[in-house]
């Protein structure tokens, strides 16, 4: 993990409360899909974790939703300003080769999945990306990549199939060899059902303090023998096998 002061290259509204932030990449480490960065924003005491949506030699990109004081301050940051960043944090999605894979997500959960889809494609996988949103406006078309099979759904039917993305996925007639998910907890819970037969990897979210595995603030319950143990989302995660998680 490194700490860098990164220049903002772009901080633009995607639509609604969703924003796309691009930072100059001055990290030495290579980031992997599933990794996150921990950003210090203004005078807020704790940093804020964000999944990586875009990564190359020059740039690091995140998608964020304005939900509180921290993200509202982030929204106001201008191109050319600097941010104090820790990264790469956390683990990452395991990358398979030459498989038929499903990626499914919604909301800001889309962020790590965009980065993931790029890498999976590179490794010869046949990638199906199930993308759920409330409305057509909340599908970020400009961030999508070529060579990936996208299947969309919107709650109001304004684009793709009408309804929940999980239902669309459930009725889809393809046999996948691996499933990757991120987004609303209810979706992730439902995906766990498939983990009996095939690997299901999901990225989970939680409030965090340190972001480096020290404070034990972000733990979730993970199956152990007949009981459970608390594992840290920031260090042991954020990617877990869906079958391991005990949902509250």
């Amino acid at each position: 993990m490194e700490r860098k002061i990164c220049k903002i290259l772009k901080n633009e509204n995607l639509s609604g409360n969703y924003y796309f932030l691009i930072l100059e990449n001055n990290f030495k480490k290579i980031f992997k899909p599933g990794n996150f960065i921990h950003i210090k924003i203004g005078n807020n005491f704790l940093r804020r974790p964000f999944s990586i949506a875009l990564f190359d030699r020059e740039k690091i990109g995140i998608i964020y939703k304005v939900v509180g004081k921290g993200t509202d301050e982030l929204r106001k940051k201008k191109k050319g300003e600097f941010l104090d960043i820790l990264g790469p944090c956390g683990n990452f999605f395991p990358i398979y080769k030459n498989k038929k894979v499903c990626i499914i997500g919604g909301g800001t959960g889309i962020a790590p999945l965009i980065f993931l889809s790029k890498v999976l494609k590179k490794y010869g996988n046949d990638v199906y990306f199930f993308y759920g949103a409330r409305d057509k406006n909340l599908i970020f078309f400009k961030l999508l990549l070529t060579g990936i099979n996208y299947i969309f759904s919107t709650d109001n039917g304004s684009y793709g199939k009408k309804g929940n993305i999980f239902d669309v996925f459930k009725n889809f007639e393809e046999n996948f060899q691996v499933i990757y998910g991120a987004g609303p907890e209810i979706l992730l819970k439902k995906l766990s059902i498939y983990s009996e037969n095939i690997p299901v990897y999901i990225s989970v979210e939680n409030y965090m303090a340190c972001g480096m595995g020290l404070c034990y603030g972000c733990v979730i319950r993970i199956r152990k023998n007949n009981g459970y143990e608390y594992k840290r989302v920031c260090k042991d995660g954020p990617v877990f096998k869906a079958s391991e998680i005990i949902w509250d």
């Binding site: 005491f45 704790l46 939680n206 409030y207 965090m208 303090a209 404070c215 603030g217 733990v219 509250d248």
Partner: peptide, 14 residues
């Protein structure tokens, strides 16, 4: 340890 929630940010603290 305790179940969630375990941490929360406050003004100038946690």
């Amino acid at each position: 340890g305790n179940p969630q929630p375990r941490i929360y940010e406050t003004n100038y603290g946690m």
